[in-house]
Simulated assay, not measured.
Amino acid sequence: MSSTETDQRGPRSQRSQEADKPHRRKGEKKYSCDECGKGYPVKAYLKRHQVIHTGEKPFSCDLCGKSFSWKGSLKTHQLIHSEVKAYSCDQCGRAFTHSSNLRSHLATHSGIKAYSCDQCGRAFTHSSSLRSHLVTHSGIKAYSCDICGKNFSQSGSRNTHLRIHTGHDVYCCDQCGKHFATDAALQRHMFTHTEERPYKCDRCEKTFKTPRYLRRHQLYYCYCSINLVLL
Rank of each mutant, 00 (worst) to 15 (best):
T136Q: 11
E5H: 13
H105P: 00
T166N: 10
H126R: 12
H126K: 07
G27H: 10
N159R: 15
Q187D: 09
L186I: 07
I164W: 03
H126S: 07
I112V: 14
T4Y: 07
R25I: 13
G10T: 10
R158Q: 15
S3N: 14
S100F: 04
I147Q: 15
L214A: 06
T97E: 01
V51R: 13
T207Y: 00
K141V: 08
P22M: 10
R48E: 13
H161S: 06
D146G: 10
V229N: 10
S13H: 12
G37W: 04
L228A: 15
P58M: 03
H133L: 06
S110Q: 08
N159A: 11
R94I: 08
L46P: 03
E195C: 07
R12I: 13
Q50C: 08
C172I: 15
H137S: 00
D118C: 04
K85E: 04
F124D: 01
G27T: 09
F124I: 02
E35I: 15
K57D: 05
R12W: 06
Y143A: 11
E5K: 14
G177W: 11
L46C: 05
A107I: 11
H126P: 00
S132W: 03
R12A: 12
T160P: 05
L162A: 10
H23G: 08
I140K: 12
R24G: 04
S157E: 09
N227P: 00
A142S: 12
K43Q: 11
F191L: 09
T160G: 15
H105V: 00
H165E: 05
C120D: 08
V42D: 14
Y115W: 07
K200D: 01
G121D: 08
T194Q: 12
T210Q: 14
Y171C: 12
S127F: 02
T54V: 07
E196Y: 05
N227Q: 15
F68R: 07
